[in-house]
């Protein structure tokens, strides 16, 4: 397994004037790296850490890439990324009417619940699907220039954050219309959301690396996520399970969803749910770090 180090040194060395026609020529910053085989665990951990830190200093690149991903998808369309908002609004509107009728529920109670659930679920779903492709789809980039591997998960997370920002408009409109503000308790959603971002990064690393190596995983993940949609209390409320509600804590998708959704609905998530969500997050983050330390240098051979 290789060891990789890249140290950002001086700023660009400025620009020299060519003697011939005075055109400016840029010099990239100093690069120092060493890739070495036979490195022990500690060395591998250090290069993984280096990768992480370098990626952190290059956040602007991953932001540009994420922004361009969205721009490209909607370039030339009138509404642009607000098509996302519109399509979420349509889904939520239709489902809200249909299911409040099917489940005999009060519209003013069900709509805010559904809007939150669908928007948060769409983030999760898209995040997981993007995670499976985060390295594979960056193949050309990975093979043409040495960049920190962590950059690709960052790009996927930022892209989905941008999409979420567009969809969040629907939640706000529904809450306004139904007069359903969560109150101060809603602030608890902020730490929960920060946890989501970390878990999303870890998930992208984990699934991204696994899927680069084993190409059968993306379809498996896609069908699992389809299943998760039905069993994770997204269109139905947890309380509808009655005495079986406790079983939901075994579902990581549910607990992770609930720690954000509950506060935004003005409720406190139960301790058990909070604890399970933290435990699942810890497991995902642990597995992702272990895998990253092990296979970081192998990813260019896999994509």
């Amino acid at each position: 397994m290789g060891r990789g180090r890249r140290v950002a040194g001086e700023e660009p060395i400025g620009y020299r004037h060519r003697t011939m026609d005075n055109a400016a020529i840029m010099s990239p910053p100093q690069t120092i790296f060493e890739t070495q085989a036979g490195a022990d665990r500690r060395e591998r951990m250090r290069s993984a850490m280096d990768d992480l830190l370098t990626a952190g200093t290059m956040w602007r690149l991953s932001w540009t890439l994420a922004l361009l991903d969205i721009k490209l998808r909607y370039r030339g369309s009138i509404l642009g990324p607000f098509w996302l908002t519109l399509s979420s609004a349509l889904t939520i509107g239709m489902m809200g009417v249909l299911y409040s009728y099917l489940f005999h529920m009060d519209v003013s109670h069900y709509f805010p619940f559904l809007a939150l659930s669908i928007v948060l679920w769409n983030f999760m779903l898209q995040m997981v699907n993007d995670a499976t492709a985060c390295f594979i789809s960056a193949e050309a980039m990975i093979r043409s220039v040495r960049l920190p591997m962590m950059l690709h998960p960052m790009r996927a997370v930022l892209r989905n954050l941008l999409i979420l920002a567009h969809n969040a408009v629907v939640i706000i409109i529904v809450d306004l219309a139904m007069n359903a503000w969560p109150g101060w308790i809603g602030i608890l959603a902020i730490p929960a959301f920060l946890l989501w971002l970390v878990v999303s990064l870890a998930m992208s690393l984990l699934l991204g690396a696994l899927c680069a190596r084993f190409r059968d995983i993306p379809p498996i993940v896609a069908s699992l996520m389809q299943l998760a949609f039905f069993v994770s209390a997204i269109i139905w409320e947890p309380s509808q399970l009655g005495q079986h509600e406790w079983m939901l804590v075994f579902n990581p998708v549910f607990t992770l969803l609930e720690i954000i959704r509950a506060p935004l609905l003005g409720e406190l998530p139960s301790l058990l749910v909070t604890f399970s969500a933290l435990a699942y997050s810890a497991i995902i983050i642990f597995l992702a770090s272990m895998l990253f330390v092990r296979v970081r240098g192998r990813i260019p051979f896999w994509v």
Partner: peptide, 16 residues
């Protein structure tokens, strides 16, 4: 270029 990390031996680059 540091894109492929070798399985044996080492590569060291100093400079941009």
């Amino acid at each position: 270029a540091g894109i492929y990390e070798p399985q044996r031996g080492r590569v060291r680059v100093q400079g941009s």
